[in-house]
Simulated assay, not measured.
Amino acid sequence: MNTNFDTALSAAHAATAAQNHPTGTLYVVATPIGNLADISLRALHVLSLCDTLACEDTRHSQTLLRAYGIDKQASHWLAVHQHNEAEAAQEVIRRLHAGQRVAYVSDAGTPAVSDPGARLAWQVQSAGLRVIPLPGASSVTSLLSASGTPAPDSSGFVFVGFLPSKATERSHAVEVVSQEPRTQVLLEAPHRIEALATALGALGARHVTIGRELTKQFEEIATVAAQDLSTWLQGHPQRTRGEFALVVHAQPQVLAAGSDNDRLLKILMQELPLKTAVKVAAEISGEAKNALYDRALALKQATSD
């Protein structure tokens, strides 16, 4: 057992043992994407409590659990991955009907986002059985939380995941990305990151935040123009190694100077704080708040000059 987690496992049992963990239930458990300390106390307790550990790769998950001092017998393990998910789900359902607690983990992060698990959860629910999520690490939300946005509001984001590996299909996918005005999250493997960076260059000056080896020792997060992404990768030999998440930032909306919106903003800004003026202007005009906010800042700067 890794001695760094001696007290963590004890704390997990102390903190959550009194909580209800019903039998005949599938627990979808998020695991760390790199830093082992990112496991939750609840996850540790459920992983040690469960009768079956369904996972994407049994060898990988055995190593992970042993790091926390959790050791399961061979009969407790069940492989459920993208190639057998539909069939293996029936075995999970059989075990749930027998009153077992089954925990499902992917190789890293939150299952069923990009990794397998979605079909399993659907089939379990369709069988009238309960699915309980145990939230935790995710490369998607981790990078989104660090990438930021220049706008005061958010129009949400689109999860794209991995683009096609074939050049023609990837180019078409990038074209679709370019036409989506909202923030988008992509994932990529190290052996394809340079090809993706080249393809994303077609987005020009649109900002891209790249997260490499998130939560790990050599984590890097940088925001560059899409057209400069290849140059950034080539800036250091280590930058093409590891796992990648990328945020393609929302397409900025620009309002023309001298429009009716300018007049509306000027009137409102005389009586209201900037953010409130922008909110009211958006409700009146129907324009996007982020575009109005940028224009209001420009007007305020012009007035102070």
Score class of each variant (00 low, 15 high):
residue 165 S to N: 15
residue 151 A to F: 11
residue 138 S to N: 09
residue 188 E to Q: 12
residue 200 L to A: 13
residue 87 E to P: 01
residue 140 V to Y: 07
residue 140 V to H: 06
residue 166 K to T: 12
residue 204 G to E: 06
residue 172 H to F: 04
residue 83 H to Q: 07
residue 74 A to D: 15
residue 124 V to L: 01
residue 183 T to L: 14
residue 203 L to A: 10
residue 166 K to C: 09
residue 120 L to T: 09
residue 83 H to N: 12
residue 135 P to M: 02
residue 135 P to K: 05
residue 148 G to A: 13
residue 97 H to F: 08
residue 187 L to I: 13
residue 124 V to H: 03
residue 143 L to Y: 10
residue 129 L to G: 05
residue 75 S to C: 09
residue 157 F to G: 10
residue 194 E to Q: 14
residue 168 T to A: 11
residue 79 A to H: 03
residue 91 E to P: 09
residue 157 F to A: 11
residue 108 A to C: 11
residue 96 L to P: 05
residue 80 V to F: 02
residue 192 R to G: 14
residue 204 G to Q: 06
residue 177 V to R: 07
residue 109 G to H: 03
residue 121 A to S: 13
residue 115 D to N: 05
residue 75 S to L: 06
residue 147 S to K: 06
residue 169 E to T: 04
residue 159 F to M: 07
residue 120 L to A: 06
residue 100 Q to T: 01
residue 109 G to F: 02
residue 141 T to F: 05
residue 116 P to L: 14
residue 77 W to K: 01
residue 90 Q to R: 14
residue 157 F to N: 13
residue 182 R to V: 00
residue 181 P to Q: 12
residue 85 E to W: 04
residue 111 P to F: 00
residue 193 I to H: 14
residue 200 L to R: 14
residue 114 S to E: 03
residue 112 A to K: 04
residue 169 E to C: 05
residue 150 P to E: 15
residue 111 P to Y: 00
residue 130 R to D: 03
residue 149 T to D: 11
residue 201 G to E: 13
residue 192 R to D: 14
residue 159 F to V: 03
residue 204 G to D: 09
residue 157 F to L: 10
residue 105 V to N: 00
residue 203 L to E: 11
residue 164 P to D: 05
residue 115 D to S: 08
residue 195 A to F: 09
residue 177 V to Y: 07
residue 84 N to S: 11
residue 191 H to Q: 14
residue 89 A to K: 03
